[in-house]
Design a protein around this nucleic acid. Sequence first.
DNA 1: GAGTGTGAAATTGTTCACAGCG
DNA 2: CGCTGTGAACAATTTCACACTC
Lengths: 208, 208
Amino acid sequence: MRHVAESTIRRLPLYLQFLEKAEAEGKATVSSRALAERGGATPAQVRKDLSFFGSFGKRGIGYPTRQLASQVREILGLGRRYRVVIVGAGRIGAALANYPGFEQRGFDVVAIYDADPGKVGRRLDGLTIRPVTALGDDLGAAPVDIAVIGTPGAAAQDTADRLVRLGVRGILNFAPVSLVVPREVALTNVNMALELEALTFALNRRRA
Amino acid sequence: MRHVAESTIRRLPLYLQFLEKAEAEGKATVSSRALAERGGATPAQVRKDLSFFGSFGKRGIGYPTRQLASQVREILGLGRRYRVVIVGAGRIGAALANYPGFEQRGFDVVAIYDADPGKVGRRLDGLTIRPVTALGDDLGAAPVDIAVIGTPGAAAQDTADRLVRLGVRGILNFAPVSLVVPREVALTNVNMALELEALTFALNRRRA
DNA sequence: GAGTGTGAAATTGTTCACAGCG
DNA sequence: CGCTGTGAACAATTTCACACTC
């Protein structure tokens, strides 16, 4: 397994989504063509993507649905569950706390934090909102893998710095600022305003 | 102006974010190096990106902050305001309705819809939740540019189909399914579970 | 000197096309 | 025969490097 393209990795969850659907529908095998339709790829691209990791298909037949799903989960590191904390119990934090995809796909939200004393102690989807000041003790006692940042923009970088110091290895950032973290920490930014702005460009482009 | 790379477009909002910050701080000019630091690009990339659209900088000095910001806004089509509807008043919809970045950056959320009669009529950030059945009449009377989909996955494709028929030109989809829309409609998918899964891969990669 | 603008080189990512297996 | 696996061709994107201007 040589250098795997970043873009390949980002397509794998899409393939997995399709595979799980096909599995639920009882399809024993699935072709690269079928996989390509979801996920906006071409059949050749699907085959190339998968070939980075091994030969999972049977010529003339396709890929065994169940096995491939399990392989892709393995590749993505979804063979185990991940401990996740959410920092920021505002609307974004609240939306994330009960996002059905998380639990279902192996991510356990173990705690949610907020800086506002008025929010601390309230319950949210079975979790009691804890003060951000407790982060150090909590993560010291039981480390987590991933943190989701849903704080206001102004607090996001400080929050990230603290989380990194506390050993968090991956950050999913919903605050509308670009964070700086050490290279060894995986960071994904989701910035809705930026998405909308890029969309706007496309909107005007297509009119032409 | 030749073919502009998709990746270039996606960096422009990042540059704009930085330019607005620099403008607020009273910096008269800004260098490609400074612009690159935010936005995870290289100085050369910034210069190349901008050069697709014209020569905005002065050699030896940098780019005039205010002018460049205004140019980038123009390029992205942010010279006017956009009418936006949100479909789905669940937690994601609620989080989006009050997302501070929207209003501030030229996007007016004019209505929010839900299929659940129990939610219809409730107020959310100054908007009364309307029944999805009213979409046809509402958009017929006053068209919108962009729709944000925050429905459950099962309803997302139907919703998208209807919105497209009603003349929506751009869709920002937060439902956890990949939507299919005609080529002339601009679509951006934001799928949090998928982001997390790609993050997981990076997490394990870096350990090596 | 500092910093842009830009062709040309290097790298990265995608598509083709076909050999080979089931 | 259908469909995978993959080198080789091609296309897109990024980086380099340097002429040029302030």
